[in-house]
Simulated scan of single mutants.
Amino acid sequence: MTLEIDHLVGGYSQIPVLKDISFEVNNGELVGLIGLNGAGKSTTINHVIGLLTPFSGHITIDDISLQENSEQYKKQIAYISETPVLYEELTLKEHIDLTIMAYQLDHDEAWKNATRLLKVFRLDNKLNWFPVNFSKGMKQKVMICCALMTNAKLFIIDEPFYGLDPLAVHDLLIEINRVKNSGAAVLMSTHVLDTAQKYCDKFVLLANGQVRAKGTLDELQELGTTPGQSLDDIYLSLAKEDRDGKSV
C-alpha cells in the first residue's frame, strides 16, 4: 500500500471542508479523484502534500506520516499542480537540476530520464528558456517533466489536462501509465470524466466534503439503477441526490 487516508477531517478554517473521508491508493493503481467544484478535491490534495494540517485523522505513505518523518514523507511524493508554478529566474535546465538536487537523484540517470521526457513533450530544444518565454501549456509540460523524472512512490496530479494540446494529453496519459506499471501509485483529480473512465483503475467520488462512493467502475455501476452507466452518469446522479437532499 502507498497512500492511506484514514478518517480525515480538515480544511482551511475551523469549519471543516473534509468530513471524515477515508480511501487508499495502492501501488500500481491510478485512482481518479472526482467531484464538482467545491467538493473537496483540492483540499484533499493539499492535506496529502502537507500544505494543510488535519483537524483529525491520519495520512500515511507506506506507513510514514508527515508528522513522524516529514523529509521521508515528502520525498516519496511528486506533485503536478493545476496551475503551473515555476521559478521565474531559473531556466528549464536549471529546473531539471533543481529537481535532481531536491530528490537527491543520481545526476546522470536523472538527466537520461529528463532528456527522454523533454523529447516526448517537445521541450528538448528549450533548455535555456526562462518561464517568461513559455506558454501556459509549456509551463505545465515543464512541471510534468520535473515530476515524472523522479523516483516518487506517489504521483499526485491535479487537473492535468487544462492547457495541454491533444498530443500532450495523449503523451501524458502514456507516461502516467508507465509510472503506474513501474509500481508507483497515482492519484489524479480531474473533471474530464470520459478520460478518467478509460484510464483509471478505481475512483473516489467526493461531494460536500464526503466520499459518496469509491471503487472500480463495475462497483460504482452497482450503485445505479441503469446497468452500464458511464462514470459521468453515476457522478451526476449522486451529485443531484445530494443537492436534492436525498440518499442512496
Rank of each mutant, 00 (worst) to 15 (best):
L90S: 11
E29V: 13
Y73L: 04
I61T: 09
L238T: 14
N125V: 01
S189C: 14
A184G: 03
V179M: 01
V248N: 05
H58M: 06
D108I: 07
H47N: 15
Y87W: 14
I15P: 00
L105M: 15
G40I: 06
G57P: 11
G163E: 03
L51W: 09
L90N: 11
A39M: 08
S70V: 09
H58W: 00
L105S: 07
Q229N: 13
K136N: 11
V17T: 15
D158G: 07
S65M: 11
N27D: 14
C145Y: 02
E4S: 15
A152R: 06
A102L: 14
L236C: 06
A168H: 05
T91Y: 08
Q197Y: 02
A114P: 08
Y12K: 09
M188F: 07
F203L: 10
G35M: 01
G224H: 02
E89G: 00
S189N: 11
F161T: 13
I157W: 12
G10C: 09
S182Q: 15
Y162L: 09
S13Y: 05
I174V: 12
I34Y: 08
K246N: 10
D106F: 03
A168F: 02
H170G: 00
S56Q: 14
S189G: 11
S182A: 14
L238K: 12
D6L: 11
L18D: 04
I234N: 08
S135P: 08
Y73E: 07
Q104L: 01
E71W: 08
S56F: 03
V248R: 10
L33K: 09
L36P: 01
T99I: 12
L8I: 02
